[in-house]
């Protein structure tokens, strides 16, 4: 298993570096202007209050948009960070097995004494490490930037929020991974279904606060179990994370069932 992880990471090193650079730049840009906004927070909050509640919920899960927690939640942890790390995870989920199969290089790997289950697990491990690396780096850099710009939030809470982002992104990636492990039919739908699961879920969960009948279907989506405001204030109930863990484990199990005996695609 270790060689597959090692060589997958080596082959993807330049893309990992670009992802790290991009996400760090995003964090920097988001936080570097906080000192200028900080002084006008009362005024800005007043303007923000005039936006209808339904629309407001698309940007944040707090009413105080420009307090330290409100700012970090709305500008980063509520949507953008989960979206960025989620896109990375979906990309990895789709390509780890999918690209190898499309390029027929999977035959080289499976011509060695390695079972399909182990290959699937090793590739998932590589994907996990990539998402973990980029997500952790972004979180640590956020914590550092918060200190530098005077955004007063406990570092432990920022790290917890980062961990939840990574978990949720892994959810999206796991769905994409399952679909690509299913072969031709799944691979075609992988990007669409994963995007609906991620973005559609976000919209549904955001609106469920105002539209009561959406609250039940919202329970099916990961955003329902992710509350950036609570995470940053240290009041998050971590039993919510069981949803993420169950979905990831379920997707891996289903991926194995789908992949272990199916015909590999040929060019």
């Amino acid at each position: 298993m270790r060689p597959v992880i090692k060589w997958t990471l080596l082959q993807r090193r330049s893309s990992i570096i670009w992802w790290c650079a991009g996400i760090l730049f995003f964090v920097f840009l988001t936080l570097v202007f906080y000192p200028t906004i900080k002084d006008q927070s009362a005024q800005l909050n007043k303007s923000f209050d005039q936006i209808p509640q339904t629309a407001r919920q698309l940007f944040t899960d707090t009413n105080d948009l420009f307090s330290p927690i409100g700012y970090l939640s709305s500008q980063m942890f509520y949507l953008m960070m989960p979206l960025l790390v989620g896109v990375l995870a979906i990309g990895q989920g789709m390509s780890l097995i999918g690209r190898e199969e499309r390029d027929s290089t999977i035959e080289l790997l499976l011509a060695r004494p390695i079972s399909r289950g182990r290959l699937l697990l090793a590739k998932a491990g590589a994907g996990l490490l990539i998402v973990l690396l980029v997500g952790a780096l972004a979180t640590l850099f956020t914590a550092l930037m918060c200190r530098l710009v005077g955004l007063d939030i406990a570092t432990a809470n920022i790290l917890m929020a980062g961990a939840a982002v990574i978990l949720m992104a892994l959810n999206f990636g796991a769905v994409a991974y399952l679909l690509s492990a299913m072969g031709r039919a799944g691979r075609g739908a992988a990007i669409g279904i994963s995007a609906v699961y991620a973005l559609g879920g976000y919209i549904l969960v955001s609106l469920s606060g105002s539209v009561s009948w959406l609250s039940w279907p919202a329970k099916l989506f990961p955003f329902n179990y992710y509350h950036s405001n609570q995470l940053l204030s240290g009041s998050y109930n971590w039993t919510n994370s069981l949803y993420f863990i169950c979905v990831i484990a379920g997707c891996l199990l289903l991926a194995w069932l789908a992949f272990r005996r199916r015909d590999l695609l040929s060019n």
Binding site: L110, D263, L264
Partner: peptide, 9 residues
């Protein structure tokens, strides 16, 4: 050949 290699069932 793909059958022998168990790439297909």
């Amino acid at each position: 050949i793909r059958l022998l290699m168990n790439f297909i069932q």
